[in-house]
């Protein structure tokens, strides 16, 4: 159950079950099959509806908008998530505007697949997690893939609703095995679903001393830390992994924080004006009397992502920063 293969299978299922689905993006056709090989094989079987484009991210977004307005279901691949900036006008001033500004007379359900994230030495412009610039855009859903969420279920959901979606795929998740909850467990951790948020902990929530909120690749790292701390140090925290980052489902966070009294957020994007700071603002209000310490926001340094492996590791959030923050928050 390798994530990139399952994701490809989810796209295949979308093409098979829904004639309106069109895949559009750069270098996505066979034999290449996309920069991360997610779409490999699909253009051979669906040549009309899997379309490779010139290097024109703005037009990819705009053409997707037109397809969606005309009743199709475009799924656009943005080769490197860094290039989503070239789609920004379409997302903010076109795609997310239509339904509301036309008073419900049109819908524009474009899905963007956005391979993101660093830790691969790709340097300043091919490693970023830029989703924070899209969080809070009205009428846009920002969803993050994780190893704990089934991509098939995600795409079935996208096709059943009409809001535009940015689907963040951290590049380091592609070769990983999915860790979907089975029998209420993920490995040695108990797994509880709260809507699309998955709670992972070694002991019941009431015995946890902190809540950790993380998504994507950082959720994978956080799960490893949570597991290790439980086994080796008998420190118990609850990890919450939401699928949807914006708008947030606050209920599971509120319920967990009510029990643990402490909250850490983890994201790979650069710090400040971010997912974590918004959560800190909202949860400070919602759980003011319940928090025994300030909310801790873990994010990457506010600079470019170095190409050098060593310098990149120091700049981006990784296991050491997560562990330090959890140890502090669990006290």
């Amino acid at each position: 159950m390798i994530f990139s293969k399952e994701l490809g299978a989810a796209l295949r299922e979308s093409l098979e079950t829904d004639d309106r689905v069109v895949l559009i993006g750069e270098d996505i056709i066979d034999p290449y099959g996309g920069a991360f090989k997610v779409t490999r094989g699909l253009s051979t079987d669906f040549p009309e509806r899997v379309r490779t484009t010139p290097i024109s991210e703005g037009a990819i977004a705009g053409i997707s908008a037109g397809l969606a307005l005309a009743g199709m279901r475009p799924i656009a691949e943005v080769m490197f998530g860094d290039f989503i900036t070239l789609c920004f006008d379409q997302v903010v001033n076109h795609i997310t505007k239509y339904e509301a500004m036309y008073n419900g007379q049109a819908t524009c359900p474009v899905v963007f697949r956005v391979p993101s994230g660093g830790h691969r030495g790709y340097g300043p412009t091919h490693s970023q997690s830029l989703e924070k610039h899209f969080l809070g855009v009205p009428h846009l859903k920002v969803v993050a893939a994780s190893l704990f969420h089934d991509p098939r279920e995600a795409f079935r959901g996208f096709l059943e609703q009409n809001t535009p979606v940015l689907y963040i795929e951290h590049k380091l998740l592609y070769p990983q095995n999915l860790r979907l909850p089975e029998g209420g467990m993920v490995g040695d951790l108990m797994a509880v679903k709260h809507g699309s948020t998955i709670g992972l902990s070694a002991v019941p929530r009431n015995d946890c001393t902190a809540t950790v909120l993380a998504y994507g690749y950082q959720a994978m790292l956080a799960a490893e830390v949570v597991e290790r701390l439980a086994v080796e140090e008998e420190i118990f925290v609850e990890l919450l992994v939401p699928a949807q980052l914006s708008p947030m489902d606050w209920t599971p966070v509120e319920e967990s924080v009510r029990a643990t009294g402490s909250l850490v957020t983890v994201e790979e994007g650069t710090g400040g004006w971010s997912w974590g700071t918004e959560i800190a603002a909202v949860m400070s209000e919602k759980a003011f009397g319940r928090l025994r310490r300030p909310i801790s926001v873990v994010a990457s340094e506010r600079t470019v992502i170095p190409s050098s492996r060593a310098r990149e590791a120091g700049m981006l959030v990784g296991t050491p920063q997560i562990e330090t923050a959890i140890l502090e928050a669990a006290k």
Partner: peptide, 28 residues
């Protein structure tokens, strides 16, 4: 403004790929 078979947007440029996308839907 929007009516069956008609849309407009005040941001320049972006309506052109959008109209092309509508054309692609017609073609498909």
């Amino acid at each position: 403004v929007c009516a069956p078979g008609f849309m407009s947007n005040g941001v320049q440029g972006g309506i052109v790929p959008t109209a092309a996308g509508i054309a692609l839907a017609m073609k498909l």
